[in-house]
Computed example of a mutant assay.
Amino acid sequence: MRTWQDVTVEVAGGALAVRRWPGRPGAGTVVAAHGITGNGLSWAAVAEELGDVELIAPDLRGRGRSRDVAGPYGMARHAADLVAVLDRLGIGRAVLAGHSMGGYAACVAGRRDPDRYSELVLVDGGLGFPVPRDTDIDAVLHAVIGPAMARLDMEFADRAAYHRFWAGHPAFTRIGGPLLAEYLDRDLTGEEPHLRSACRAAAVREDAEDQLRNPAVFAAIHELTLPATLLWAERGLRDEPVGLYAPEVVAASGLADEGVALHFVPDENHYSLMLGASGPRVVAAHLAAAARRDPAGQG
């Protein structure tokens, strides 16, 4: 396994916890944002496949070991936090990656601070689905992410019980191993037998409101001035046959005409693309290629 460092970065409202997998000097850097109820270790399997490329993945505010970083939340705040991470670590420019909700944060970040990023790689996220104003956000979250949302109201007697909960998730049938266990453990807070998810429900709801109702967030992927790639999984968040982005949705998005490179990833679901055996190799290959294309990352 690659060596890594845990660092903290002061931001408005507290200190972000950041996992850093150092790389070879000149091989480039990737800074990566995770999904709505995840943490930075969702990128661990990708980091293992990246070889010499540095990868930096914060726990976004309200999640993981950044759970006590205060709001407000939202994509613009996450975008500002990503720049703060780069500044703290002395990185002038990086490849920017985002999975799921992290893809929306990455699009907003890339539009706001294009000089800090060479390319964007979006992993099953970033292309928006607006919902009506009178729709209950909790209902949407339970419908879309299901168990990931339900767990926020649950307690677990020990870590093994929490691991069993996720083992029963239909999208996790092909996912396992020590990297997954570390990712799940980072999401726990409290003491046995009263362990809970470290995700702040308020952060999840506020980010969902922004992601699902903010026209500026929907527009960000269409207003990028940087090269961008969208990887979209064949299967869904609960391993449904149709993924988060159905083929007709991607075709109708206009992204291809706007210069976004579109790459369909067969046989993977929303989670296995990041945490499985073969999915992380696909993601890492695109990130490594983006790092090689950045002259600043090679100097």
Rank of each mutant, 00 (worst) to 15 (best):
A70G: 14
E54R: 05
A296F: 04
W166M: 01
Q211C: 06
R281W: 04
Y183P: 09
T229C: 07
D257A: 15
T8H: 09
L287G: 14
A290R: 12
V249S: 07
A106T: 05
V131E: 00
V131N: 01
L179M: 08
V95F: 00
V30K: 05
L86P: 02
I221P: 02
P215V: 05
A76K: 14
V95E: 02
G26L: 08
I175Q: 04
G38E: 10
A15N: 07
L55R: 07
Y245L: 05
M1G: 14
G23C: 03
M154C: 14
R235M: 05
E240V: 15
L224R: 03
G125D: 06
L184D: 01
A161L: 06
A219K: 06
A148C: 13
V85E: 10
G297Y: 00
V46D: 09
D68S: 09
L287Y: 05
G14C: 15
Y183D: 10
R151F: 00
A47W: 04
A57T: 15
G35D: 00
L179Q: 10
I56A: 02
E10L: 07
D52N: 14
G190E: 13
A171F: 03
D267W: 06
G126T: 03
H163P: 11
E182R: 15
A216G: 09
R292S: 12
H78S: 13
S253T: 00
H142G: 06
A290W: 00
G128H: 05
A157M: 09
G13M: 12
L224I: 08
D210Q: 11
A109N: 03
A251V: 03
G126V: 05
P241E: 14
R61G: 11
G102E: 00
V31N: 09
E182I: 09
E48A: 04
T229L: 04
A219M: 08
I91A: 05
G40T: 10
R196K: 06
A148E: 12
F129A: 14
G98L: 03
E223R: 15
L237A: 15
Q5K: 13
D68L: 12
A57L: 13
D239I: 01
P280S: 05
G26I: 00
R77N: 07
A202D: 07
